[in-house]
């Protein structure tokens, strides 16, 4: 597998909505490289005709009757909000 560049890592950080200092980018790039290098051994396994498992249980969609039930009140839903206004979550402007 290909090696991973600092620019790769910056791109991934952007996708993950994370940010790192220049110094940390260096460190995390080498750590990610080492971990990916280790896990890449899965590529050597012959999986021809083997289906992927996303879940160990043989479960199907779970349906329920569409019945109204008691739910979370607005007050309790906002209880942990870092900022609120007009009975809603308040966030900085969307750029």
């Amino acid at each position: 597998m290909e090696s991973i560049s600092k620019d790769n890592v910056k791109h991934i950080a952007e996708l993950a909505e994370l940010e790192f200092s220049e110094k940390d980018i260096e460190k995390i790039t080498s750590q990610i490289e080492r971990i990916l290098d280790h896990v890449a051994n899965v590529s050597s396994v012959n999986t021809e005709g083997i289906l992927p498992t996303s879940h160990v249980l043989n479960i199907k969609n779970v349906f329920r009757e569409d019945m109204a039930e008691e739910s979370v009140t607005q007050e309790s839903a906002l209880k942990n909000a870092p900022d609120e206004a007009n009975d809603g979550f308040k966030v900085p402007k969307i750029d």
Binding site: E17, A77, N80, A81, P82, D83, F89, V91, P92, K93, I94, D95
Partner: peptide, 17 residues
């Protein structure tokens, strides 16, 4: 940082936040 948990309060835009 929207509905619960830690939020950086200085951020000026949503994505920065």
């Amino acid at each position: 940082g929207v509905r619960y948990g830690y939020r950086n309060m200085e951020a000026r835009t949503l994505r920065e936040m």
